[in-house]
């Protein structure tokens, strides 16, 4: 009896240790594979042509070589593109988060005739890809004289139809529904009208959801190149500029050498592109690094699903 119990204990301890080890190995492997493209990007962006051809140089370049970054900066007109990005993204995120928090309350807490129809429309809006109906939006924006200006995106964000707005409205609605009704009833008895209840009671209480949605909104606006590429004509943000760096490089190189691109130039091209990618993802990654703790914990604790 005693012996068997002890053996069971050992077995369990051994299993626990083995499991921990297995998990560590597995997570390390998966983590490496996940980070691999990024590591490669960083390493390639610092490589000079001779480094790339040198078989002894695998990950670490022989020295910090800023040439690729210099070229990438020039090619993308980085400063200008970054300014365009900030001008587009920051107001859009603010407007989108405010409007989604506001609208979602209407969906969560009021009994209105026809609300289920509207909710169905919201679900449709989540599912249907926005590229499917881009042409009429383009026409409409032209008629409103907003085409090629940032205002078209501000307007959409404000009216709750920005990039993935429907999804955020859905998420925040789920969150509102988990809150006890008594809170609002108490506020109502104390003489708050629904707007006051919303501002003083509901908004402070859904802070984790607001943070989650803000980060997602920032990321998706920052990375969106499809919508912005289609509705803008010049003054492009970083996400659109980066898509054409490759072809610009090609035409420049062909112009310089007057012939097909040689192997050396190909390597150079890849390194400059890697540098360009690095400086494009750097700002958003920095922001994410600042807020990620609150963000991942926010999603985890609250659970988007509700």
């Amino acid at each position: 009896m005693d012996w068997s119990r002890r053996s069971l204990l050992y077995k369990r301890r051994l299993l626990g240790f083995g499991g921990g080890l297995l998990r560590t190995i597995f997570l390390l492997g998966v983590g490496y594979v996940t980070l691999y493209p990024l590591l490669l990007m960083i390493s390639t962006s610092f490589m000079s042509v001779s480094d790339t051809l040198d078989a002894t140089v695998v990950w670490l370049p022989s020295g910090l070589n800023w040439f690729n970054f210099q070229k990438a900066f020039e090619l993308m007109r980085y400063g200008e593109a970054l300014k365009n990005t900030v001008k587009l993204v920051i107001p859009c995120v603010l407007l989108q988060v405010c409007s989604c928090v506001f609208i979602a309350y209407g969906f969560a807490r009021f009994k209105l005739p026809g609300l289920s129809v509207l909710f169905g429309l919201l679900l449709f809006n989540i599912i249907v890809p926005s590229n499917c109906y881009i042409t009429p939006v383009y026409v409409l924006m032209t008629e409103l004289k907003l085409i090629n200006t940032p205002w078209q995106f501000y307007l959409q964000a404000l009216l709750g139809v920005g990039v993935r707005s429907a999804l955020y409205i859905f998420i925040i609605r789920q969150f509102y529904r988990t809150m006890p009704k008594e809170l609002e009833e108490a506020a109502c008895i104390d003489g708050c009208n629904p707007i006051q209840t919303f501002l003083r009671i509901m908004v402070p209480n859904i802070r984790p959801a607001i943070l989650t949605v803000s980060v997602l909104s920032l990321v998706w606006y920052y990375n969106d190149f499809s919508m912005m590429g289609m509705l803008l004509n010049g003054n492009y943000p970083l996400s659109v500029v980066i898509t054409s760096v490759g072809s610009t490089l090609d035409s420049n190189m062909q112009y310089l050498t007057g012939q097909a691109i040689s192997a050396d130039l190909k390597i150079l091209r890849a390194s400059i592109l890697a540098a360009a990618c690095l400086i494009v993802v750097l700002p958003i990654t920095a922001v994410y690094a600042l807020v990620q703790r609150h963000f991942t914990e926010g999603i985890e604790r609250t659970g988007i699903v509700g």
Binding site: S99, F102, I103, Y105, G106, F107, R109, F110, K111, L112, L115, L118, L121, L122, F124, N125, V128, Y133, V137, L140, Q156, L158, L159, G160, V161, I169, N193, P194, I195, F198
Partner: peptide
């Protein structure tokens, strides 16, 4: 009040969807 909360979205969804 409910319609007030939904009004920006109703305008947006009809115009842009």
């Amino acid at each position: 009040w409910g319609w007030l909360f939904l009004s920006p979205w109703i305008l947006g969804i009809s115009l842009f969807f």
